[in-house]
């Protein structure tokens, strides 16, 4: 049984880690664009992003399910009920969170670092690179928050993954399954494992960030 738990933990880490990297890959550049210059349009986009942070996971799951199901517009991809679909779903889910928090970090840095860089003779590009480099520790924290949200969500993993044993079962769907079976103690134990794993990842990232 514990071998299965270990497998589920590993799968959760892999799926949520990949989803987080994917989301960070597009979210941070978007945040950079949103904070590059003040404009009404960008402010509206930021408000929209902040609103989407609160989107229910099950709603993201449902929308993506409709898109990816056999009769949906992306059904031809045949990725529903695979780890890939959970990766995509979680990446979409945490995108607004990473964009919103990264924009907040970069806006703060822009007021100081960007201006200092320009004032000493940096080009726009050099100033931007300096701004991002100086924000890295805080951006890593933002990415970590995204990862924690991804690994702890249930709606997307359940609707897009289907909780298939040995293929798409992750920590949260395993906990939900045990609850539905009335195995509350085991569900609680799995919850503890989930929290411990998340804590461990947080500690490692914090340590790496400090060293960097």
């Amino acid at each position: 049984m514990w071998q299965e738990v270990a497998e589920v933990v590993a799968r959760s880490l892999l799926i949520s880690g990949t989803a987080t990297m994917l989301a960070a890959f597009w979210s941070i550049p978007v945040a950079m664009i949103l904070t590059a210059k003040e404009s009404e349009f960008r402010r509206v986009l930021l408000d929209l992003t902040n609103t989407l942070v609160a989107i229910p996971t099950v709603l993201v799951g449902l929308v993506l399910y409709l898109l990816l199901s056999r009769s949906g517009p992306l059904g031809f991809l045949g990725i529903l009920y695979t780890p890939t679909s959970i990766v995509i779903g979680e990446a979409v889910l945490i995108t607004p969170l990473i964009v919103s928090l990264s924009a907040s970090v970069l806006r703060e840095t822009r007021a100081g670092i960007w201006e200092m860089a320009v004032s000493i003779g940096a080009t726009e590009r050099q100033a931007l690179v300096t701004m991002v480099t100086e924000s890295l520790p805080r951006l890593m924290s933002v990415i970590l928050i995204g990862f924690n949200r991804a690994i702890g969500e249930l709606g997307v993993a359940l609707m897009l993954g289907g909780n298939i044993k040995g293929l798409t079962r992750v920590m949260t769907t395993a906990i939900a399954l045990e609850v539905s079976k009335g195995e509350f103690e085991f569900a609680l134990a799995l919850g503890g494992v989930l929290l411990f794993v998340t804590f461990l990842v947080t500690a490692i990232v914090r340590k790496v960030g400090k060293t960097a």
Partner: peptide, 8 residues
């Protein structure tokens, strides 16, 4: 700047 801005 009045308030010095230091890089890491």
């Amino acid at each position: 700047h009045e308030k010095p801005i230091m890089l890491r």
